[in-house]
Design a protein around this nucleic acid. Sequence first.
DNA 1: GTGGTCTAGACCACC
DNA 2: GTGGTCTAGACCACG
Lengths: 128, 128, 128, 128
Amino acid sequence: MLIEIDYRDKRPLYEQISGKLEELILCGVISSDESLPSVRSLAMDLSINPNTIQKAYDALEQRGLCYSVTGRGRFAAPVDEVLPAKKLEVFNELDAVVDKALKIGMTEKEIVDRVHEKAIRGNTGGKV
Amino acid sequence: MLIEIDYRDKRPLYEQISGKLEELILCGVISSDESLPSVRSLAMDLSINPNTIQKAYDALEQRGLCYSVTGRGRFAAPVDEVLPAKKLEVFNELDAVVDKALKIGMTEKEIVDRVHEKAIRGNTGGKV
Amino acid sequence: MLIEIDYRDKRPLYEQISGKLEELILCGVISSDESLPSVRSLAMDLSINPNTIQKAYDALEQRGLCYSVTGRGRFAAPVDEVLPAKKLEVFNELDAVVDKALKIGMTEKEIVDRVHEKAIRGNTGGKV
Amino acid sequence: MLIEIDYRDKRPLYEQISGKLEELILCGVISSDESLPSVRSLAMDLSINPNTIQKAYDALEQRGLCYSVTGRGRFAAPVDEVLPAKKLEVFNELDAVVDKALKIGMTEKEIVDRVHEKAIRGNTGGKV
DNA sequence: GTGGTCTAGACCACC
DNA sequence: GTGGTCTAGACCACG
C-alpha cells in the first residue's frame, strides 16, 4: 500500500491516515471516482483497528474528498470539485505563516527567496 | 492585560497562553528582561487555575523565551538569543506549506503573489 | 519494578523518576521502542500521584528519550538518536569537574589515575 | 568586587554567592585569614537583601570555609585545613561523572583523552 | 510576595 | 485501556 503510518507522529492515527489519503487523491495518485480500499482490507494492511479506519474515512468524506455508495464501497471524489476549496485552505495557511514571519521581523524578500529556493528544489523531496 | 483566552480555540489553555506570550516577547511588546506577570496574578486575571499558568510558563521557559528566578519572578529572555532559532522554525513551516501548495498544483508565481499581497496589507491585521 | 523512590533524595520526585528511566533507556535495560509502564500503573506501583508520573514522562519525552502515542502508550526512543547528544552532555559535565579539580590544585595525573581506578572497579558498583 | 551574580542561574542566590566565595578562597584569591566583606557592605555592593548574604555566609561557615569572630568580622579559613575534604568531594563528583560516562558506553580512553585536552587548554578559560 | 512540587479527583479524545 | 488537560487546594524554599 501507499500508506505508511508513523507512530511517532503526534497526530491521532485516523487523522494521519485521512491526511495521507487526502494527499493521494489531490495529487492524482488515486484518480477521481477510483475505488478506495475497504475498511476491513485497509485495517488488515496497516494492522490497525477497523474502527480507526472507519473514522479516517468519515473524516475524509466529511471534507468532501470521497463519497460512499451503500453496498458498493467508497470512491475518490472528482478533484476538480475539491481543489478550489483546498487551494483556499492552503492560501490561508500560507497567510498565517507569512504573518508570523513578518511579525518576527523578516522581510518580504527573505520570504520570497525562501519560497523560490523551495520551488527550485522541487516538491519531490518534501515529506508530507 | 494583553492576553485573552479564546475558549473556542481547540488548543489547550496552557499552549494558548504560552503561544500568546511567545508572540509578545518575540515582537518586542514585552522587552528583554522585563518581568512577566506572576503565576498567581495572571491566574486571577484570566480566571484560570494557577497550575495551568505554571504549565504555560514552563513551556515558555523550555522554549527559551523566559527565565524564572525563585522568589523574584519570571522575566522575558533576551530576544537576540532566541530569534535565530525561531526564524529557522518559521522557515521550516514555510517550506512545509509551500510544499503542500506545489503538490496540489499551484505555481511558484501564485504563491509569491499571495506572499506579496499579504506583505502589502501589512502584518497588523493578521490573527495570530 | 526497576524503579525505586528514595525519599531522602533532595531532587523532586518527577526528576528522580525521569532520571532513573533515562538511565534504563540509555543503558539498554529498556530497549528501543519497548513500551514503558503506563502512567496509572506506574503511579500505583510507586504509590505516587499519576500527575507526578505524567510530569516525569513529559520531562523524559522533552529530552527525546521516549515518545507517546495517545491511546496506545509510551515507548522508549531509539537510543542511537539520543546517544550522541547525551555523550556531549556528559563530556561537558566532565569538563566542568576537571576544571574544578584543576582550580583547587590537582594535577592531571591525579585526575587520570582516579579515572583509571574507577574504570577498573567497573561501572557496576556505582550509584546513579 | 570579584563576585558577579547571574540571575539566569537556577541556583538560589545565596548558594551562588557562597559558591563563588568558596572558589575565591580555595584558589587563594582570598588568602587564609583574610577578612571577608561585611554582610552589609556586600549586600550594598550586589544590591541584594542582607538576609541573603547572611545566609550565604552561614552556608560558607558551615562548610568550614570561613570563621567569624564576634565583633571583629568574618575571615577566610586556612586553605590547608579545608583542601583535603574538598579534594575528596571533587573526586566523588569525578567518580559520578565517569560512572555515567561508562554506563552509556564510553571507553576509558575517550574519557582520559578528554581530561587531557581540558588540562592542556588550561583552567584559565573555564567558567565557574 | 515569588516560583516549584505534589496530591486528589475530574473530564476528554483516542484506540 | 491509554495519554493529556484542567481544577482545587496544600506545602515548601527563596528573598
